[in-house]
Design a protein around this nucleic acid. Structure first.
Lengths: 149, 149
DNA sequence: AAATATTGCGCAATGT
DNA sequence: TACATTGCGCAATATT
C-alpha cells in the first residue's frame, strides 16, 4: 500500500447517471420501490416483505434523493478523512510520548548518578567528622534507596 | 452507537430480486454485462481482438463471481476488524505511555528534591569548614527517605 | 497466477 | 431537517 492514487472518482462525474441509464437500458423496473439493494454498494439483501418503513418509498430518481445522496457522500468523505486524521494524530502522539519518555529516563539516570556522588561525598565527610569529632549519632545515612515500584 | 440491526448477512441467498441495478458508483465502470447494447452496429465496437479470458465483464450471476465476492467480503470484514483493533491498541499505548510518563516525572521530582537537600547539606558543611566553625548544631539529620510514589 | 489484504467509495440506517 | 457516524458490499489495487 503505497502509491497508487486511486483512480478517478472524479468529483462531479458520478456513476449515478450511469446507473440510471443502465437500469433503464436493462429494462429493469425503474426505482425498485425502496429496494434495499442499492446499486453500487449498499447491496443488501432484500427484506422479506415490508418495504415502507415510513410512508415514503422515496423515489431514487428524485432530485431530492440525488441531492441527499450527494450530500451524504460528502459528509461521509469528510468524516472518514477526519477519522483518519485522528488516527494519525494518535500515532504521532505515541511517538511524542515515547520521546518524552526517553528524555525523562535519561534525566533520571543523571539525577541518580549525581545523587549517588553526593551521597558518597557526604558519607565520607560524615566519617571524617566521626573520626575527628565526637561520635555523632546522626549517621544512619546509609543508602536508603527507595525502590520505586 | 449503532446496533447494526442489519438483517440478513446471510451468505448465500442473494440473487433475490433482480434489483441488481448496480453499476457501482465506485469507479463508475460501465461494464457491458453481456453486451446490452449489442456489438452490432454502431459506435465503437470492441477494441481489438477477441474477448480475452481476462478483463471480461464477469457474469454477476456466476457462481464464481458470487463466491469471489463473498470471500472478499470476509476479507474486508477481517481487515477492518484488524484495523480497528490496531487503532484501539494504539490508543491504549498512549495511555500506557502517559502513565509511565507521570511516574517518571514523579520520580524525577523526588530525586530532585533529595538532591537539593543533600546539596544544601553539603554546602553548609563546606561553609562551616571554610569559616572554621565547629560542627554547628543546626545540623539536622538527613531526612533521607520519604517513601511515596 | 491465484488468493488474500487494503483501500476508496457510495448506500442506507442510525446517531446527534 | 441537516449533518455525522458506522456497518456493509463492490471493485480496484496492493501484497503475498
Amino acid at each position: 500500500m503505497s502509491k497508487a492514487s486511486q483512480q478517478n472518482t472524479t468529483p462531479g462525474v458520478n456513476g449515478i447517471s450511469v446507473i440510471h441509464t443502465q437500469a433503464h437500458a436493462s429494462g429493469l423496473q425503474q426505482v425498485p420501490q425502496l429496494g434495499p439493494a442499492g446499486p453500487g454498494g449498499g447491496g443488501k439483501a432484500v427484506p422479506p416483505s415490508k418495504q415502507s418503513k415510513k410512508s415514503l418509498p422515496m423515489d431514487r430518481n428524485s432530485d431530492e434523493y440525488r441531492q441527499r445522496r450527494e450530500r451524504n457522500n460528502m459528509a461521509v468523505k469528510k468524516s472518514r478523512l477526519k477519522s483518519k486524521q485522528k488516527a494519525q494524530d494518535t500515532l504521532q502522539r505515541v511517538n511524542q510520548l515515547k520521546e518524552e519518555n526517553e528524555r525523562l529516563e535519561a534525566k533520571i539516570k543523571l539525577l541518580t548518578k549525581e545523587l549517588s556522588v553526593l551521597k558518597d561525598l557526604f558519607l565520607e565527610h560524615a566519617h571524617n567528622l566521626a573520626d575527628n569529632v565526637q561520635p555523632s549519632s546522626t549517621e544512619n545515612t546509609t543508602d536508603s534507596d527507595n525502590a520505586g515500584q
